[in-house]
Design a protein around this nucleic acid. Sequence first.
DNA 1: GGCCCTGCGTAACAGTTTGTAACATCAGGG
DNA 2: CCCTGATGTTACAAACTGTTACGCAGGGCC
Lengths: 234, 234
Amino acid sequence: MSLHRLLVVEDDAEMAAMLAAYLQRQGFFVTCADSRASALQALQTGRVDLILLDVSLGDDDGVQICAEIRAAQEVPIIMVSALSADHQRMAGYEVGADDYIAKPFNPDLLLARIRAVLRRTRRSASLIHRRRDAICRFSGWSYDARRDEITAPGGWQASLSARETALLRVFLANPLIPLSREEIAAALDDEEAAEGRAIDMLVNRLRQKTDPELIRTERGTGYVFTAEVARDDG
Amino acid sequence: MSLHRLLVVEDDAEMAAMLAAYLQRQGFFVTCADSRASALQALQTGRVDLILLDVSLGDDDGVQICAEIRAAQEVPIIMVSALSADHQRMAGYEVGADDYIAKPFNPDLLLARIRAVLRRTRRSASLIHRRRDAICRFSGWSYDARRDEITAPGGWQASLSARETALLRVFLANPLIPLSREEIAAALDDEEAAEGRAIDMLVNRLRQKTDPELIRTERGTGYVFTAEVARDDG
DNA sequence: GGCCCTGCGTAACAGTTTGTAACATCAGGG
DNA sequence: CCCTGATGTTACAAACTGTTACGCAGGGCC
């Protein structure tokens, strides 16, 4: 069992200290943050396997932070709230939290939930997009994120345009998963692109520069990157 | 938004009926089982996206069933219990349940949890499926789920359309079992397809691309995949 | 067998979706 | 100002898939 890193986002200092102490005793590596800003910084700085996110964070709204993090990363999140009103729980789920727990909670229950979420996500852990990933390999090809270079099986170097690169990254982050044009556009930060056939053309051009087989069409649905992706961390 | 199939495993008939009615109104396709045996049968017969599993099932033990199912399949499971004692919750988690909810529960909360679990599992679902049966062999043919390629006895490669592939997968998952058009349509996640003769045409086209003998017609009933299927987990 | 009815195979067709070439637009650099 | 490359738009061909129509096959009934 590897060491898991938890990020506790909690503005009540005493609560945070208690939690951190308890979780450290249980064998986790715990980082604390007391605001949206410090939470985001912690996420940028180091690896985090799971976030315990307090719903009420003074000025900042936990639900919103949850959505924000989810939009950018795949880190699992457990929401913690002092209010057990159901609509709050709902809000947490809608926004993409992996689980929810109400204060005051039984420490053992918290532990069980953390482990359950970690176990659930571990399976797909290799697919989780990591900031650090420098080189991705997929079916003979490799992509170096640092140099922004793609290398064909034969050693050829193809040069991708900015948008093609962005698209490739989206696919690399979601291998084997069907992506709709809307999802791709959203991932490219360009919702409009889903309107016309810009995505089609993008995919088409990426196909031509790589391997046409790499991206399969799911008629009426979207596209799938058909290769498994292996990552070399820097 | 695709239709999700739920399997409700609950021995209290009244409770089961209520749940089924409620969940059907919410747009789920609900199957019920009242014992370990019927639950396992339901899992064998048709596709199930998520199981609501009662912890106390008369003679059968829900926790044990949960473990049993988990050992064999990747179906997500939500445990339901009348006792909210924490150690029960723990038992559920240890055994591999994806979530836990205590009776009596707020229907909306149940719904939120179902959706949360489905959303969580959706992404990795296709991947897991591909993993599980990477290559199937049947009467000289072989189908590689990863590459989505079908190979004829002679070594020829036939290319199937997306829908034909989906149909083939349904048959591969149910060899030697007569399937009605409704069942096929349901398995294809497209209930409407059972209305007209779309399924007929699908079967027809799959027959033409493979071996006409592979799929036998059961007049007035449906179709049977006539070959045994061997799997190489990849 | 002859008849009829129903269900099925299949060809032809139509609507929709996607591939792709050609063109339009736009920004940046000389 | 033009050239160049990147990117979106358009137009048309090709592929996919459901619908319709027609004919055949199976089975009950006389």
